[in-house]
Design a protein around this nucleic acid. Sequence first.
DNA 1: GAGATTAGAGTCAGTCGCTGACACTTGACA
DNA 2: TGTCAAGTGTCAGCGACTGACTCTAATCTC
Lengths: 210, 210
Amino acid sequence: MTVPGLRERKKQHTRDALLRAALELFTTKGYEETTVDEIVEAVDVSQRTFFRHFAGKQEAAFAVQEMVETRFMRALCERPAGEAPFAALRGAVLGSWDAVGESIEAVVPVELHMRTYRMIESTPSLLAVHLRRSIEMEEQIAGVIAEREGVDLATDPRPRVAVAAFSGVMRVTGRMWGAGEEISVDSIRAITESYLDHLGPALAEDWRKA
Amino acid sequence: MTVPGLRERKKQHTRDALLRAALELFTTKGYEETTVDEIVEAVDVSQRTFFRHFAGKQEAAFAVQEMVETRFMRALCERPAGEAPFAALRGAVLGSWDAVGESIEAVVPVELHMRTYRMIESTPSLLAVHLRRSIEMEEQIAGVIAEREGVDLATDPRPRVAVAAFSGVMRVTGRMWGAGEEISVDSIRAITESYLDHLGPALAEDWRKA
DNA sequence: GAGATTAGAGTCAGTCGCTGACACTTGACA
DNA sequence: TGTCAAGTGTCAGCGACTGACTCTAATCTC
């Protein structure tokens, strides 16, 4: 991967600065209490620039989540074709936990992301969007799983069921991460692992054999 | 119940008019495409009046839902104490279906409410709020069930699990109602009943005996 | 029944999120 | 070196929403 040009780097730099400033303000002052003007003032750019990088205030709040989810989806798509659906999901989530840490840190401190997560869950308007994003992602995952297994998503309920169960665990995991005091990425990884182990047996059977 | 005074009746009248106009515009022009100015112009009141009756555009979109939910919660609380949790939920939802029809019709045509439901599910920003409202209501229901059964919501997962399953059925039912062409209240009642019958056996056991 | 009270509605000015149009600056590239 | 275009700034404006004030008319009190 070649180093992008100066222009591109500058652009990325202002975007990162805006994102950090936004999340910092959101998590300290509160989301609703933070105005876009305050964010751009902290970075010393025009308001118009903010809206060129982010479709809206909300998008800034979910920018890191977006990164994490993208990374997870990529990891899922790269799982070996032979793996059973649940094993693939498990492998993708555990595999991406590691990479996520560094990946986030390159843009914002992980600790800031933790605070952001907590903020999203405690801000009604953001919680609403978060839930919608969740079910949209479940639908995407179900699509991938259905394709992997060669089943028809329209008639076979198993992909959606498996994903719903899996997402439930991920949701709980995420909430625990957000709620906990000072949980390391390692410990959340361990919890995720144990929760998924619990859920596994019910879903691990090979659909093509059964 | 005594007839409210003239002032109160006038107030209710403008509120109802605003609600009808809002839902009519939302469902024909689309939610995002409808401005508050258009709504108040249709009723010929000031914009300020709209915001005195509704906290925002969104609240108008969910006003009828709110009525339905309130009615359901009341019905649930009035179920006989001896009933098993699932029977109580079933009784409350089926019992409230009937009353809901008339109750809605007093404010807006039921057909308009159907269209509104469809609109909510197909408008991203409203879908988000809808999902949040749903989980908030699930939490309320779980609280009622836990109290009825005398179990501790903090330690016993059964109320939430039962409610989650129940709500899943209600969600599907609602979606079918919204998606269907011209479904009567009677037919939706029948579907609800059959779906709940399917789910029942797994939840009907008496928790205090088991 | 006349006057005081007060709830509901109107007016106006202003904030905040967000967008379109246009001009400017400065990397990129021939 | 000069052209092109991407990234940014400026400005004007819309739509959701709020606070402060006024006016009108239903209600309450004597």
